[in-house]
């Protein structure tokens, strides 16, 4: 369990995060954590709350706020994912999400660099992110390049024999962000989820993950604003969920109806506890959380 000094550090951390977004003219949003319809995602199990579900991310509501005309919004909120427990996972965790209209994923990478440098300077601890060089632009590595450099099998083969996740966890992630934070970007289009495909190469999605010390910290992308393509992807995902888990997931109709009004936009989700863990040079979420599951 947390001690009093760590509580002060956490509070300072939240102040730094919020003041960063205030300074950059973002509006703080709050949206319901309990909703009747979530993003259909095969690999995420949302906990039920009576007939509704606890959110895995505030993404749907945040994008509806963009569609209403909000320019820049952020939110720090609890998210829930059933069965995810480990050194870097917790069934309830804090997510920071921010969204910008008229922006793409490159802008989000610049935001990450500036935000994390601000965190490093703003915390009372003096040795934040020890051994990691946060200065300048951080390296970008495409998923294809990362497979070429670190994987024993080429990307195409990993996709074909359905071993992408295993290779990523085993061979690639441990190599990322060791000296400097690193953006792993341009995911295969089939892993786009809610990201826009790259106009320059329809085989990849404009999506990136930020890695520091081998730990995935944030997932950002240029948003897909095409409601028809989004509906097709959701339909596929709903079928996958039915096939794999026997669960009937609903189509987020209100979200799809709002999507065309959003226009070009980019958004990102960042694991707040993971970032604090890395800032304080810790190796497990329970080292920085107020209460772990075992304390309750």
């Amino acid at each position: 369990m947390i001690n009093l000094q760590r509580l002060h550090t956490r509070a300072a951390f939240f102040r730094v995060l919020r003041s960063f977004f205030y300074q950059h003219d973002f509006l703080e949003a709050d949206t319901p954590v309990r909703q009747p319809v979530l993003i259909p995602e095969t690999n995420i199990q949302p906990p039920a709350s009576e007939d509704w579900l606890l959110q895995a991310s505030p993404e749907l509501c945040m994008k509806r706020l963009l569609a209403l005309g909000a320019e820049r919004i952020f939110q720090i909120c609890p998210c829930f994912r059933r069965g995810e427990r480990g050194r870097l996972h917790s069934e309830e965790f804090l997510m920071l999400e921010w969204y910008r209209r008229e922006a793409d994923y490159h802008q989000l990478m610049r935001d990450c660099e500036e935000l994390i440098r601000t965190v490093s300077r703003g915390l009372p601890e003096t040795d934040c992110f020890a051994g990691i060089d946060l200065s300048g632009r951080w390296p970008q590595l495409t998923v294809a390049e990362a497979f070429g450099r670190f994987s024993p099998v080429p990307l195409e083969q990993a996709l074909e024999d359905d071993s992408f996740d295993e290779v990523l966890v085993e061979y690639i992630e441990p190599q990322l962000g060791l000296q400097q934070p690193c953006f792993l970007c341009d995911y295969p289009a089939e892993m786009a989820s809610l990201a826009r495909r790259s106009p320059a190469d329809l085989q990849v999605a404009e999506r990136f993950e930020l890695y520091i010390r081998g730990v995935e910290v944030a997932n950002g992308f240029s948003e897909l604003a095409d409601a028809q393509e989004q509906r097709q992807r959701f339909t596929q995902e709903i079928e996958h969920i039915k096939a794999q888990w026997g669960r009937r997931a609903a189509m987020p109709e209100q979200f799809l109806a709002a999507l065309p009004a959003m226009g070009e936009a980019a958004g990102i989700a960042l694991g707040v506890d993971r970032l604090l863990m890395l800032a304080l040079n810790k190796t497990a979420l329970e080292d920085v959380q107020t209460f772990s599951a075992e304390d309750l």
Partner: peptide, 14 residues
Amino acid sequence: FEFSKPGKGQSLYR
């Protein structure tokens, strides 16, 4: 034992 789950990916139990 370690639980891992790459972004948007599957739960992996190592």
